[in-house]
Design a protein around this nucleic acid. Structure first.
Length: 670
DNA sequence: CAGCCTCGAGTTCT
DNA sequence: CTCGAGGCTG
């Protein structure tokens, strides 16, 4: 065969095979037998081997995978992948509908979709070709799993027709069909491997396999339900899905456009009953306002769109016996009661423990030792006791008496009137509190000391080397070497990690030392406002409350912390070791009091700066960020595509609207 | 004063 | 993820 003949045949075969893939995996209507299909694929592979110059990454032969990915690259999403608000009852859903009706004041339609219990994915297409697939991650950034997603046959590699824009993103859910899941577990059991827990975790696990060849064998499926892009010209969500379908995407056939909330209820009730008949798991229904114009009018909260909501089906419940209650001590001294349950299988995992949160919850549930309780998984993962099976209560069931003394250090517990939680007041002498504080201090978001996780801390604490966080900086390699599991290498790494942590900026050090009520955000605010630890130490509660978002409770907590001599001493030691207790020169140069007392709303996208950086600038110059325009707002900083509601409101209230450039002038030196 | 939003803290199992 | 606390808006 000549080279040009081969090229032609490869192209023909590729096209033909993708066509059959589409018929089989998207339409579920195979046009040829499996055998004939395999023959075509085999011929293609043979030709590609002979003429490798014609092997394209878009070839259907590439769907069998093979590429090995060492680590997945983290990629920033073009459009943040928001989560949806959740509802669990018809009333809550009715409330949602009322809010929509009130905002829109006109007719609107909903689109109902099934809520797949899988892994969310965003796939970009360029010039009609599969380009990149990224997991949800934290919503801002996700993992690039392009090679693995390419092996999913229902995801088109080349789009059909030519109605699609040159570049866009489509979002959906990757699931493992129940049948595939069962099949895999049958095989695993045969060869004595531990079965996979449930389809959802299996899909997630599969997507993170480093060998895309292994992924291809797992037969994942992908349902797509949302289009994003600058060049899309549709008026409604439903129309865009119809278009996506025509380009060859597997858009769920279950999606339905409905005229009002009652039809939504009907959709929900039908699927709640029929969901077992589906080939995959769903955990609810998603309801979206159909019209794009109306979606825009409704806008977003910080976390989720106001034009869509998820209705979750009642979680699966099981009942089991509460055998005993143990009490955990957290780093703040908070005592958390934990139920020890007779192990029971729930949604694929064995549940042995469940948090009871605090004494009020125990009282409200009226649980007693020996009771049979109902357990379900709140938020898919964390088990939760939701009630007691009263008829099954044994006559001798013991009421729970909350402990009066700390289970670890035996100090008498305290509980103030208005607080839900009991506390152990022995802050500096209660082992779990000390260890907890250290774990917090060394954690990734705080001092980020590599090699110092909970196990190492346990080891160092028990051996008497660490009594408080300042001792960390006195550690020497010679101290570490005699310890178990501390060879030359890990000791050196640990020392290096400790040394490196001295570079951590002031705001993170302030967070790390663990003042009650001071998390990442509040620590930053305090750092920018007071600039160094001396100023902060001197501040009275009244002065502290000058800072935005800091009220009486937090101010008291900060003042009390610095009043305690042990803390003052601790900080003194850390200062001597060279940790940062003032803002860096760079940060300092970027701060001022120019915006003191001013309140800003930031809306839209900006040309030279990200929204987050802009907000940071506002804070560094003494200004305050708020989410929505009100009478107290000084300025609305307007970017591209800002929320129309905000604009309208600002105009109505006479709030000054300024551009990115005007804002930059306000904070620049001149 | 109610209703919101944001932040902090604690949590399960593999 | 969820709950509660705290703060802010209207």
């Amino acid at each position: 065969m000549t080279s040009s003949e081969a090229k032609k045949r490869i192209s023909e075969l590729s096209h033909l095979i993708e066509e059959h893939n589409y018929n089989y995996y998207v339409l579920a209507k195979p046009a040829i037998s499996d055998y004939d299909f395999d023959m075509l694929l085999e011929e293609l592979q043979k030709l590609e081997k002979e003429f490798p110059e014609f092997l394209s990454p878009d070839s259907p032969s590439q769907r069998v995978g093979g590429a090995i990915t060492k680590e997945f690259q983290t990629v920033k999403h073009m459009y943040p992948m928001l989560s949806l608000g959740n509802t669990y009852s018809e009333e809550e859903l009715k409330d949602f509908d009322d809010r929509v009706a009130k905002t829109l004041q006109e007719k609107y339609e909903y689109v109902c979709e099934l809520k797949y219990d899988g892994v969310a994915i965003g796939i970009s297409y360029k010039q009609g070709k599969f380009n990149q697939a990224v997991t949800r991650g934290d919503g801002e950034k996700g993992d690039d799993v392009t090679n693995n997603v390419r092996t999913i046959r229902s995801v088109p590699i080349k789009l059909r027709g030519n109605g699609f824009p040159p570049s866009f993103e489509i979002r959906g859910e990757i699931v493992m069909p129940r049948e595939v899941f069962n099949e895999i577990n049958r095989e695993r059991e045969e060869i004595g491997e531990i079965p996979l827990a449930n389809p959802r975790n299996s899909a997630a696990g599969t997507l993170k396999l480093q060998d895309s060849g292994a992924v291809a064998k797992r037969n994942l499926d992908c349902y797509l339900y949302s289009l994003l892009g600058e060049e899309l010209s549709y008026d409604s969500h439903y129309d865009s899905l119809e278009a996506a379908k025509s380009w060859g995407f597997k858009v769920p056939i279950y999606t339905k456009k409905v005229p009002d909330i009652n039809a939504v209820f009907e959709f929900i009730n039908n699927w709640d009953k029929a969901r077992m008949d589906l080939p995959f798991d769903i955990d609810g229904v998603v309801i979206k306002v159909n019209s794009y114009a109306q979606q825009k009018a409704l806008g977003y909260t910080a976390k989720s769109p106001r034009w869509a909501i998820a209705f979750k089906f009642k979680a699966v419940q099981v009942s089991t016996v509460l055998e005993s209650i143990s009490y955990q001590v957290g780093r703040t001294g908070a005592i958390t009661p934990v139920a020890n349950l007779k192990p029971v299988l729930l949604a694929g995992t064995t549940v042995k423990r469940a948090s009871l949160h605090n004494a009020d919850i125990i009282e409200k549930l009226d649980v007693r030792i020996g009771d049979t309780v109902f357990v379900e998984k709140g938020g898919e993962i964390i088990p939760k006791i939701v009630g007691v099976d009263l008829p099954k209560r044994p006559p001798h069931a013991k009421a729970v008496h909350f402990i009066t003394h700390c289970p670890e250090c035996h100090t008498e517990l305290r509980r103030s009137e208005e607080e839900a939680q009991h506390f152990c007041p022995n802050e500096s002498g209660c082992p779990p509190q000390i260890k907890g504080k250290m774990e917090h201090f060394t954690g990734r978001r705080a001092m980020n000391i590599d090699g110092m996780g909970s196990e190492t801390i346990e080891l160092l604490y028990d051996s008497g080397l660490l009594k408080n966080i300042a001792d960390i900086y006195d550690l020497k390699k010679e101290d570490l070497l005699p310890l178990d599991r501390m060879a030359e290498k890990s000791a050196a790494n640990l020392i290096k990690g400790i040394e490196d942590s001295k570079q951590i900026p002031f705001e993170r050090v302030l967070f790390a030392i663990g003042i009650r009520h001071i998390g990442e955000t509040t620590a930053k605010k305090l750092a920018y406002y007071f600039k160094d630890i001396e100023q902060l130490k001197k501040a009275s509660p009244e002065e502290l409350m000058e800072v935005g978002d800091i009220g009486g409770k937090i101010a008291q907590s900060v003042a009390a912390y610095f009043k305690d001599e042990r803390n003052a001493d601790l900080i003194h030691r850390l200062q001597k070791k060279g940790l940062n207790f003032r803002l860096s020169e760079e940060a300092l140069a970027n701060t001022s009091e120019k915006l003191n007392g001013l309140t800003f709303v930031v809306s839209g996208k900006f040309r030279d700066i990200s929204r987050d950086d802009l907000k940071k600038l506002i804070e560094q110059h003494g200004g305050k960020n708020v989410g929505s325009v009100s009478g107290n707002t000084s300025y609305l900083v307007a970017g591209e595509k800002m929320g129309p509601e905000k604009l309208k409101k600002a105009e109505k209230l006479g709030v000054q609207i300024i551009s990115e450039e005007a804002f930059m002038k306000m904070v620049s030196d001149t």
